[in-house]
Amino acid sequence: MISRRDLLKLTGVAGVGSTALSGYALAEAFREKVTTYNLTPPNWTPGLKLKLAVLADLHVCEPWMSVERLEIIVEQTNSLGADAILLLGDYVVGHRLGKYSGKVSNGAWATALAKLKAPLGVHAVLGNHDWWQSQDVQDRRAGPTPAGLALQAVGIPVYENNAVRLEKDGQPFWLAGLGDQWALYPLDDEYDEFVHGGKIAYRGVDDLPGTLRLITDDAPVILMAHEPDIFPVTPDRVSLTIAGHTHGGQVRIFGYAPVVPSRFGSRYSYGHIVEGGRHLIVSGGLGCSSLPIRFGSPPEIVTVQLGGAEGGEV
């Protein structure tokens, strides 16, 4: 939903575009929808019905994802009646979007997110841009990150290779959060090997085996990960992996996304993916990276209904 203030800003930018298509792509970046998935994944407890709301890739900045717009999204999310709300990272603006936008303080967007409410709480992981925001973090090649500290300051727990056991109607499940897989820029001596070799060079702080060692019983496990690239090595023990990062390609032409930031290309670009009986849901996210446009990939709030009727996107 777009506010009047943001609409005026949007109109001004679209006016300098060379085609009506550029104006449409700008406008689509402001029209979020709610996408719902209904499934009962493997290893799910019979009778356990759980509704999750997922917010990914907010990239808060002026004017594209202002605090005012974020507050509207928070209100809309609260109205969905989810049991728990999952935040999948990239709260801050992408570094390449800087010339098109103004920064918003970490405290401002975190305060807006603090208004999210759900019976089983709000839970967060960090994304690559949250790590890239601070040069000090990159220099010491370790957290904490400013974004993570901002979330914790308003009472939102941040999971980095950690897990928590929750209960719904007396039935337990685990919520696990993976450290970011693209957290650190490569060191100088790594550029030739990775960049010139055509590989993604970023170093992660993720530890999937260590995260899963924290699971102490046979209750189902939901894994939060910013990037979906972890999915091929995620074991059957995990009932469902939920990720963001890709923006659904951000620009999709007849369903095809020319650019997807993943080692696997478009394999995990968007939606409900099943491989070997394992389930992954990739959110298209809400904000923008590089350019403040979306085309064929509107921003979305995702809800996941687990233990209900089988099916895909509603």
Rank of each mutant, 00 (worst) to 15 (best):
residue 256 Y to N: 12
residue 186 P to T: 06
residue 313 E to C: 00
residue 234 T to W: 01
residue 144 P to D: 05
residue 237 R to T: 10
residue 42 P to Y: 01
residue 264 F to G: 03
residue 230 I to P: 10
residue 158 V to W: 05
residue 179 G to P: 10
residue 134 S to N: 07
residue 244 G to H: 03
residue 221 V to Q: 04
residue 250 Q to E: 01
residue 107 G to E: 06
residue 71 E to C: 04
residue 303 T to Y: 09
residue 213 R to C: 09
residue 104 V to T: 02
residue 179 G to K: 15
residue 89 G to H: 07
residue 48 L to Q: 12
residue 54 V to F: 02
residue 139 D to M: 05
residue 191 Y to V: 15
residue 13 V to A: 10
residue 7 L to R: 12
residue 137 V to S: 06
residue 236 D to M: 12
residue 173 F to N: 13
residue 159 Y to P: 01
residue 215 I to R: 03
residue 127 G to C: 04
residue 49 K to A: 12
residue 243 A to Y: 08
residue 105 S to G: 02
residue 36 T to W: 15
residue 29 A to Q: 11
residue 169 D to P: 01
residue 102 G to P: 14
residue 313 E to T: 02
residue 314 V to H: 07
residue 178 L to P: 06
residue 7 L to N: 09
residue 150 A to T: 07
residue 133 Q to S: 15
residue 297 S to P: 03
residue 118 A to G: 05
residue 4 R to G: 12
residue 48 L to D: 11
residue 63 P to A: 04
residue 311 G to A: 02
residue 215 I to P: 03
residue 229 D to L: 07
residue 56 A to Q: 08
residue 53 A to F: 05
residue 48 L to K: 09
residue 73 I to M: 13
residue 122 V to I: 02
residue 44 W to E: 14
residue 194 F to R: 10
residue 212 L to N: 00
residue 117 K to I: 00
residue 12 G to F: 11
residue 270 Y to R: 09
residue 308 G to W: 10
residue 250 Q to N: 01
residue 204 G to E: 11
residue 302 V to F: 01
residue 237 R to L: 15
residue 167 E to C: 04
residue 40 T to I: 07
residue 249 G to L: 01
residue 308 G to H: 08
residue 14 A to T: 05
residue 307 G to K: 12
residue 221 V to G: 09
residue 240 L to Y: 03
residue 287 G to F: 13
residue 196 H to Y: 14
residue 285 G to M: 15
residue 276 G to E: 02
residue 79 S to T: 10
residue 189 D to N: 08
residue 96 R to T: 13
residue 203 R to D: 08
residue 247 H to W: 00
residue 77 T to I: 00
residue 196 H to I: 11
residue 32 E to M: 00
residue 197 G to S: 03
residue 211 T to W: 07
residue 289 S to V: 08
residue 244 G to E: 03
residue 70 L to E: 08
residue 175 L to A: 10
residue 106 N to M: 10
residue 222 I to E: 09
residue 272 H to M: 14
residue 50 L to C: 02
residue 162 N to E: 15
residue 14 A to D: 05
residue 263 R to M: 09
